[in-house]
Write a protein that binds this DNA or RNA. Sequence first.
DNA 1: CGGTGTGAAAGTTTTCACAGCG
DNA 2: CGCTGTGAAAACTTTCACACCG
Lengths: 235, 235
Amino acid sequence: MPDSRTPSGDQPSDQTVPKVVVSRISLYLRELQRLQAAGQQTISSGTLGALLGFSDAQVRKDLGFFGQFGYPGVGYRCDELIHAMRDILGTNHRWPVVMVGVGNLGQALLGYRGFGRQNFSIEAAFDTDPSKVGTVIQGLTIRDVAELPEVVRRLGIRLGMIVVPADRAQEVADRLVAAGIDGIVNFAPVTLTLPPHVETVAVDLAIELEQLSFAVTNKFGKPAGEGPAGAQEPR
Amino acid sequence: MPDSRTPSGDQPSDQTVPKVVVSRISLYLRELQRLQAAGQQTISSGTLGALLGFSDAQVRKDLGFFGQFGYPGVGYRCDELIHAMRDILGTNHRWPVVMVGVGNLGQALLGYRGFGRQNFSIEAAFDTDPSKVGTVIQGLTIRDVAELPEVVRRLGIRLGMIVVPADRAQEVADRLVAAGIDGIVNFAPVTLTLPPHVETVAVDLAIELEQLSFAVTNKFGKPAGEGPAGAQEPR
DNA sequence: CGGTGTGAAAGTTTTCACAGCG
DNA sequence: CGCTGTGAAAACTTTCACACCG
């Protein structure tokens, strides 16, 4: 484009990037990390796409939203692309996170190693149940929700996870917002009402099963021959 | 359309329904169940949409993929629409499900009440760890994965959940497919290769946090400002 | 009225196809 | 060569706007 230097992530980006593109970036990153761990140095858009069930053009277009990262005739260097995608996603630095709700699911998430692998670290966990407050789970002392504002401020935390029952989720969301949080992952099966400056991502496990139920139910009412090989469709 | 009888879910559906429409159907259903529990009899597309952040037209168009369910001037009857949407999603009947992997997360999912609420029931759980096989968790006796085919056949199970580490997920998927499963929810952070007749839904918890990281990082690069995520050190 | 259902228009995302580069 | 980056075309999704209904 402007000149002919070595590829690098310059910023043509000012257009607004579709959400679905960002979710694919996460999938590219995940796959690249696997490839790198397997010793692969470079990869082409075609190969990367095939591993995930996307076209080569889609991979290139997606990356094109953020800059130029490839080498014509060669492909992309895994290490460079991983670094670039972490920059895009904001995960080249560590994110401290708070969790509210340490029931079944909350406790499991506290022990999930996958967060740390992508540079997220649950730094504090809260509950309202007095029988839980003060106990130690996965090395963390559970605190009373009343301490939320102080802890968020002291640790400079911007992200929170809601892992409480549906009927308590909005109240917890309000507390997180009041404490100054910028983004929330909501595992409760309810839609939160939030001020527009707070970002949110919803995960509803029952809905995932419903989507599968629909797909399986309607499998034999579809068009004929379906897609390429058996690559899994991304969410 | 054809005649003027009471609205009901007849099926103009043969067009292929976009996935994003199906995911909104799940959200409509969730909200309707909440409204019904709160005693509401009817709801308009505008009100329902507003509760979820969608336009009235979107709600009507989405429902239009599956039939005619509304009463002009009135809206939709909650009980009817709930039933219709369960029919669409295939959750008016109970789905028995198998789970493979009863680590941290698997055990939490075994205890999650939200599945039962939407008519899914985890009927059997498997692991390969001999120290887990034979133990009872959440009232279920954990079985050896070798028993998968027999149990799936005997209980007529069509859906499976993969809750094992990434490096074991493909092998487990192959076993589920061999056992005759039709759909898989995959919680492992890896893309599965599956035959085209097997449906799949992927849930990657770290990716959800990454999406939030991106949104928060770029919140102030949206309207006019500079520097969304491109910056990278020139090589 | 207040609301649905639905073509047609607008907007968005994906695919195509090809110039250009090492 | 093999592959990227990217306009332009195609496909798809959302919004608009309005006839019609109770």
